[in-house]
Simulated scan of single mutants.
Amino acid sequence: MLARPIGFRLAAAAATLGLALSAAACGSDSDSVSASESISSETRVFAADNGDIEIPVAPQRIVATGYAVPPLIESDAPLVGISEWKRGIPLMTPEDLAEYESLEKIAGDMSAADTNYEAIARVDPDLIVIGVPQPAMVDLDLGALEAIAPVVAIGPTNPAAWSELTERQLDAVGQLDSYEANKATYDEKAAGIKEKYAGVLGSLEFGHLGAYGESAAGNFQREFAGSWGTNIAQDVGVNYYGEVKEKLGGSQDSSEYPAIENIPESFADADVITYTVEPDGSVGPEVQYVLDSELFKTLPAVRAGKVYGLRYTEAATYTSALQTLDAIDEALAPLLTESAGPSSSAPASSAPSGS
């Protein structure tokens, strides 16, 4: 079922725009104002996670939350408010960071329950793009948001879905040209790196140690294909073997959290192990907990010195993923030059390759 018509929700924004323009308008300027109002009032039906929603064809005042924040900033969409997105700050260009910092923050970045409905109303949006996972939608008052502007929920289903997610979000705000250009740049770069490593990656099986384990609970995060730490590396030909023991939906289809005692079993067949590091190359405490484990040090890949840290594993747009590709290329470079045996005498728990 379609959401309620949006004409009345755009009235205040249109009136404000009309008054501002009419104050400076004279002669033929009135024709420009009429054309602008006509464009802003055109609508279309968009298929969102929350149903078929009537939205502006060319939204002029957009609020974005969650995973919708970085692609809309990168595409220069007309944003008036965003949720915080601190995890993406290290991947932002100086220009995008300046835009991010200048925008009104209408929610935190840890929970949809932090949404400030009064702040959203104050910035007077004509479209609200919600980019949080489906389970987090229960923390939102959609009725309150829909009373302000049309709401399209376009959230992630799994870590590797960011490409499709970004495309849908940019489609909703009329910025698909930006998506196509960024995807083409990414695809070209990934293909070049894949060709560079084609001679060494084909026969190797990789395992990945993620950053979201809980040392206090005595477990670690084992990521498989399609997860945060693996999906971009897969685009250059890295083969992450295995799968979770039980698929429970979402990110739990591509990562699991075994007890630390299961390290030998989990990584026994890995020729190479990659692991997530912070954007500055430092090792987070949950990862260091595993690297320091005596069980980890007995693994064949560790004993062979084939353990590499990967930066920028949280990239969720094609533009930011270009930095991830560079980091992967840098981290795996020893595979191109090493002969049999370790390429360095440094222990696996030291500063990671590429940091």
Rank of each mutant, 00 (worst) to 15 (best):
S102Q: 08
Q221T: 08
E214N: 14
S251G: 03
A15M: 08
K189A: 13
A48I: 04
P70G: 05
E164P: 03
D114L: 07
N239C: 08
V151N: 03
Q134M: 10
P133E: 09
L97I: 02
A119S: 13
N262I: 00
P342C: 10
G309M: 05
E256W: 00
F220I: 09
I148G: 10
A144F: 03
D253F: 02
Q234A: 10
K105G: 01
P342I: 00
A351M: 08
A58C: 04
A191E: 15
K189H: 07
P264I: 02
Y67E: 04
R44H: 03
T157D: 11
A107C: 06
E205V: 07
A270S: 15
Q234T: 10
T43N: 07
E37I: 14
D49R: 01
A315D: 12
G27M: 02
E104F: 06
D171K: 07
Y240V: 13
W162Y: 15
V129L: 12
A68N: 03
I232G: 05
T166M: 15
L299S: 12
P56S: 07
T276Q: 13
I53R: 11
S345M: 08
I120W: 04
V236F: 10
P264R: 05
E195C: 05
A68G: 04
L165H: 06
S355E: 08
K86R: 06
D269M: 01
R61N: 11
G66W: 11
A348R: 03
A217H: 01
A268Q: 07
L325V: 08
A24H: 11
F206E: 13
S345Q: 11
Q175T: 01
V272W: 03
A327T: 08
A119K: 13
A77D: 07
F220V: 11
E104T: 15
V123F: 13
D187C: 02
L204F: 14
D280L: 02
A184H: 01
S28R: 15
A268M: 01
S339L: 13
E286Y: 12
E205L: 06
V277R: 04
V132Y: 12
Q134L: 10
E84A: 12
L91Q: 08
V45M: 02
E99A: 14
L299F: 09
A161V: 03
E180R: 15
F220R: 10
A331V: 09
S215V: 00
I273L: 08
A184D: 09
N50M: 06
V272P: 09
I106P: 00
A233S: 13
V152D: 02
G354Y: 09
Q288L: 03
Y212C: 07
A198L: 02
R4F: 06
